[in-house]
């Protein structure tokens, strides 16, 4: 309990500091630390699956993404310079009071909630045998609420399309990265195979213990981010059709399965006897697509294709 109280206070303090400090770089470092503490909170709240996802995204991708975005901002605009000199002191005060009112209302609502509320846990446990896997979180994601996962992968794809179309407006060449030095190169050579191995492990373990397609995909993406940071670029021969195929493999696998289940029974209702195998297959495709999409989101611009039509 003391641990929880300290952790909660630290989280609140970090949130306040990262949102109010003047230096943007400091804010980013504090945000990464915030994500790290969130991972410990998920562990305290019995949610190791969420902790895995938070670590894979928070430690592997978010910090790197924020830092390269900060690096792209023009230098003549000093990061962190405030420009709200005109703001009257009354506005922050009013806002703070209003938000305090809202927060205390929400807090009171939480306080008066019943202490025991089983939610859907009973139904998940009752139907777990039919799902084909023994990790309930994977069962929910890939079987009971499969359509959520399908739409979520499509959202990732849409975000990537947005990023690509923003960049196609101006034809600035990709920022040339300095060649990696020996230490960085060795680190990559050791870490990237290990990351791929761990991604495969998480995918496989996801059937009956914490892990699954999202965590594994994020780990794959982290391997891609490391490669990109070391100066590696996708060969132009792979940047056209092969990349697109990798991006849509997950959604296409999902939609195909959805169509097949529509013929038989209802949307994405997996047949009980094949459910375990189908989930593993779906997860493999989903992991691959999620990994490639997240890494492409980090790269931030369309890779150079052969023929230079990018």
């Amino acid at each position: 309990m003391l641990f929880d109280a300290l952790l909660g206070l630290l989280l609140l303090g970090l949130a306040w500091l990262l949102l109010s400090c003047r230096d943007l770089f400091k804010a980013i470092v504090l945000f990464v630390a915030f994500g790290l503490l969130m991972a410990i909170v998920w562990v305290r709240l019995d949610a190791p699956d969420v902790a895995l996802a938070e670590v894979a995204i928070g430690a592997g991708l978010t910090g790197a993404l924020l830092m390269s975005a900060l690096a792209k901002l023009p230098v003549d605009n000093p990061p962190g310079r405030y420009s709200n000199e005109k703001t009257h002191w009354l506005l922050p005060l009013t806002l703070a009071l209003m938000l305090l009112l809202v927060a205390s209302g929400l807090g009171y609502a939480l306080w008066s909630l019943p202490v025991i509320a089983p939610g859907l846990s009973g139904e998940v446990a009752a139907n777990l045998e039919q799902s084909g896997v023994s990790n309930p979180v994977t069962a929910v994601l890939l079987n009971f609420r499969g359509y959520d996962t399908l739409l979520e992968i499509v959202v990732l794809l849409l975000a990537l399309l947005g990023v690509w179309s923003l960049n196609s407006l101006d034809a600035t060449p990709a920022t040339a990265e300095k060649p990696a030095n020996l230490v960085l190169d060795t680190l990559m050579r050791l870490l990237v195979p290990l990351l791929i191995l761990v991604a495969a492990y998480l995918l496989w373990a996801g059937a009956n213990s914490p892990g699954g397609a999202f965590q594994a995909g994020a780990v794959l993406a982290a391997a891609g981010v490391l490669l990109l940071l070391a100066g590696w670029r996708l060969p132009t021969a792979l940047a056209g059709l092969p990349l697109r195929l990798a991006l849509v493999a997950g959604p296409v696998a999902f939609i195909t399965l959805a169509a097949l289940t529509l013929l038989n029974a209802r949307l994405l209702e997996l047949p009980v006897e094949h459910a375990g195998m189908l989930i593993l297959l779906l997860e493999t495709f989903a992991m691959f697509s999620i990994g490639v999409t997240l890494a492409a989101l980090f790269l931030g611009q369309r890779p150079q294709e052969r023929g230079g039509s990018a």
Partner: peptide, 16 residues
């Protein structure tokens, strides 16, 4: 081992 590897590499990169 992984923490050692990451720590040593990052220490070199930052010091360098």
């Amino acid at each position: 081992g992984l923490v050692l590897l990451a720590g040593a590499s990052v220490a070199y990169l930052i010091a360098n």
